[in-house]
Amino acid sequence: MSDAYAAAGVDTDQADEGVGALVSVLRTIETGTPSRSVVPSGHYASVLRVTDELGIAIATDGVGSKLVVAEQADRLETVGIDCVAMNVNDLVCVGAEPIALVDYLAVEEVDPERLARIGMGLKVGAEAAGCEVPGGELAVLPELIRGHPSPQGFDLCATAIGTVAIKDIILGDRIAAGDAIIGVPSSGLHSNGYTLARRALQEQGGLGLDDTPAEIGGASVADALLEPTVIYVRAVLELLRSSVDVRGLAHITGGGLTNILRLGAGYAIEDPLPVTPIFDLVARLGAVETAEMWEVFNMGCGFVAIVPEADADDAAAILAGHHPGARRVGTVTDQVGTITVPGLGLSYPLR
């Protein structure tokens, strides 16, 4: 249970219970034909078998309450990047190459100029990921959407699809104790934990979006909070096409390091990537305990690859070629379901 996050309005335990209730119903769907799904529920993306050789990967996600900051700052040009990133970064975790994304944009009021600005981010993100945006949906919902300020409210989410050879799907089932964990840097909060971050910075810390606290090196609060989510697709695809034996891939989003547990096994983070300064500011102003920060946020590591020890250097070099600072951060253990960060005295699940 994340105490500060719950106080900010997001009870992660309750959310998990809600997801469980929803999935328990969806699992009872009877289509009258054998299931095409080939990836267990709870992984980063679903994969449906199209032929014996070909699978279609599907992921869906949104930008979340980062949109509140974009509305408050009237800076809409980058949140489309976040929307693309949250989807395509999940797709590549099963070894898929993203090919297309369709967006769903719900607005309080239609404003063509604002929509064009949102579209700019979608364009930049799609080009960075190498995928198309062949269509989407615009819904005008003044009774449901309320902006910050009104009537400028909107919600933005999308669904992305990709292709993957059935034989090449990556699930983490080949991960073994002793494998190397390669971490790839994040750019900041990405698109997770904003309810807690906004409460810490704006409500508890009393900061305005134009303020420039020393911890973030002269950048404004808005700059730090609206830094786009990194798109890892091209780096990961190069890794997958190399001779490196890629055994697991994890997109580090809400839930922090615990995202790696979707791959099975256990993990020791022995040399974490540097923590992005915005996290230190959130922790200080929000009085958020270190353990909870690592449980909620990416803490400077936005993506992880698991490879055999012998491939660690090559994997790090390929990923660092796209994202400087990528390097080995730890080792797979035989303590299934547990992540440790020895230097910080942390262990997940918390105990």
Rank of each mutant, 00 (worst) to 15 (best):
G183H: 09
L156F: 03
G162T: 00
A177K: 14
V184K: 00
A160G: 00
G172R: 00
A165L: 13
D173A: 12
I161A: 05
A180E: 08
D168H: 08
C157L: 12
C157A: 15
D168K: 14
L156Y: 05
G183N: 09
T163G: 07
A158H: 08
G178H: 04
I166G: 00
P185L: 12
A176D: 09
L171E: 10
S187L: 13
A176V: 07
V184S: 03
L156V: 06
L171N: 06
A158Q: 09
I182F: 07
R174V: 11
I170H: 13
A165K: 14
G178T: 04
I170F: 06
G162W: 01
G162K: 04
D179W: 01
I161F: 00
V184G: 08
G172E: 04
A177C: 01
D173E: 15
K167V: 12
T159E: 10
T159N: 02
G183C: 11
A177V: 02
I170T: 13
R174T: 13
K167H: 14
A177R: 13
A158R: 02
K167T: 14
A160H: 01
R174P: 09
S186D: 06
A177Q: 12
A165D: 14
I182Q: 08
C157N: 15
L156G: 08
G178A: 02
A158K: 04
G172A: 07
S187K: 13
A158S: 11
V164T: 04
R174F: 09
G178M: 05
G183Q: 09
C157D: 08
A160S: 10
I166M: 11
L171A: 03
I175V: 12
D179N: 13
I182E: 09
A165I: 01
A180N: 03
A165P: 05
P185Q: 13
I175R: 06
K167F: 07
A180F: 11
D173T: 14
L171R: 12
T159A: 14
I166V: 14
V184A: 04
A176M: 08
D168N: 14
G172S: 11
D168M: 06
S186M: 12
I182L: 10
I181W: 02
L171F: 02
I175Y: 05
V164E: 02
I161G: 01
P185G: 13
T159L: 08
I181N: 03
I181C: 03
S186T: 11
A176C: 11
V164A: 05
G162A: 11
A180V: 10
K167N: 15
G178S: 01
I170P: 01
I161M: 11
A176E: 14
G162R: 00
A176G: 05
S186I: 10
L171V: 02
I181M: 04
I169A: 09
C157S: 15
C157P: 00
C157R: 15
T159W: 02
D173W: 02
L171Y: 01
I169L: 15
A160E: 03
I175S: 09
S186Y: 10
I181T: 05
I169V: 15
G178Q: 05
I175H: 07
A165T: 12
I166Y: 01
A165Q: 13
K167L: 13
I161T: 07
T159F: 06
